[in-house]
Computed example of a mutant assay.
Amino acid sequence: MSRNFRRAGAAVLAALTATALVACSSEQAPQGEGGEGESAGSSTDTITLGFSQVGAESGWRAANTKSIQDTLTAENGFDLKFSDAQQKQENQIQAIRSYIQQQVDVIAFSPVVETGWDAVLEEAKAAGIPVILTDRAVDSEDDTLYESFIGSDFVLEGQTAGEWAVEQYDGEGYKAVELQGTTGAAPMIDRQQGFADAIAGSDIEIIDSQTGNFTRTEGKQVMEGFLQKYDDIDLVFAHNDDMGLGAIEAIEAAGKVPGEDIKIITVDAVKDGMQALADGKINFIVECNPLLGPDLAEIAKKVIAGEEVQKRIVVEDQAFDQEAAKEALPDRQY
């Protein structure tokens, strides 16, 4: 059965329910610039929110985008202006500055990387526009530059993955490779740290690490390189499902059996990953819940109403082995 890992200090908004998702594959251009709909301040009932998304690099990100778009609707009191940064920090900074010029009521974004945000966030603060971080944090000494950060505990995700690996494989001298997320991104930094801390003192050894940028294509390419370089890989730790699924393709092409010849642990728990886990091609998945739209809507409404909000809201996640994945798949929303 699945094990529920409740986060210390987690703030779960009990009144919220997740919106059912459908697949989202196309990237979206900025909406609302010069378009129809309420402008900021034109209606006390409508909150104009500018959101800058990282990109569309994975199934997780598609689910995250859909949750935001399905929740921040006119029916729910929002005029959503959405932009896709296509994995580039400069695009996000440009989008945020555009939202400031448009005088939106709230700005929200999921940062591509942790650093380099102070200048544009100070511009938003000077304009009196509150900022909410979703999914990923920023590395800034001034936490007054944003109202709240909603997202999972990435260190704990890596730790959970590492602890399971130690429980299962310590004492067998496993050689592991790591498929890392985007260099400089909070989930990459934190998942690496959590996993490394968890396996410290065991005989599991990470023999190589390389970024696959959270994509299936690059995960496959990196794994192909690992397989050419090493003939003794026992375990793969992938920072997300998509890179793990790419690794499966590379392992199978090399004539090996994923989940048996080479064990695989991933993070996210999107449907494709969960199916691979149920099929035995992945061995363990730590969830990272992408359904942040309801939380974002609730916090934005509170901020606009002048209510106090928690600085850090930690999303509740689970972890799955094969049997738990089989049980969860029929009702999986993402």
Rank of each mutant, 00 (worst) to 15 (best):
A119W: 00
R312A: 11
I313P: 07
D234Q: 10
E224N: 13
K125C: 10
Q94W: 11
Q101K: 15
G59K: 10
E114T: 12
G225L: 03
E287F: 01
E298S: 14
S98L: 10
A328V: 09
I206C: 01
G259W: 01
I251T: 00
M188S: 15
E205K: 09
H239L: 00
V286Q: 00
D321A: 06
K125D: 10
V120Q: 07
E224V: 07
G194M: 01
I204G: 03
A161Y: 08
P111N: 08
Q69H: 09
Q87C: 11
E260M: 08
S110L: 04
T144F: 01
T73K: 02
T46S: 12
E122Y: 01
K281P: 02
E38C: 15
A56E: 11
L49G: 01
A161L: 06
I96Y: 11
L16I: 14
A276D: 08
K229T: 12
D45E: 14
T215E: 07
A108W: 03
Y174N: 05
Q275H: 10
L156A: 15
I199E: 02
A10N: 10
E287T: 07
A176P: 08
T215L: 00
I282H: 06
D261E: 06
A276L: 06
D203V: 03
T48K: 14
D153W: 07
S67F: 07
T144N: 10
Y230R: 08
L291D: 14
E178M: 15
I262D: 08
F82H: 09
T217S: 14
F5H: 13
R136D: 01
M223N: 02
K271I: 15
E36C: 14
I199H: 06
A10T: 11
Y99T: 03
F109I: 06
A126L: 06
N4M: 12
K301S: 09
I285A: 00
A29E: 14
E27R: 15
S110I: 00
F109C: 03
E308Q: 14
A124W: 10
S98T: 15
G173H: 04
P330C: 10
R191N: 08
R332V: 13
A62P: 01
V257W: 10
A14T: 15
S25R: 14
Y169C: 05
F226H: 02
Y334N: 12
A254C: 06
T65K: 13
G181V: 03
K88W: 04
A62I: 05
G37S: 01
R332K: 12
N283C: 06
D232S: 09
L179P: 02
E298R: 13
L329F: 02
H239S: 11
A200R: 05
Q180Y: 08
R97G: 04
A74M: 15
I129Y: 04
P294N: 03
G181N: 04
S209Y: 00
K175Y: 04
K263A: 07
G59I: 06
K125S: 13
F284A: 03
Q221K: 14
G162N: 01
V113M: 01
G55A: 05
V138Q: 00
Q228Y: 00
S83W: 04
A238H: 05
M223V: 05
C288S: 13
D143K: 12
F237Y: 13
A20K: 14
Q193I: 12
A56W: 12
A247N: 04
G34V: 07
V315P: 02
S140H: 02
G306F: 03
E252N: 05
Q89R: 10
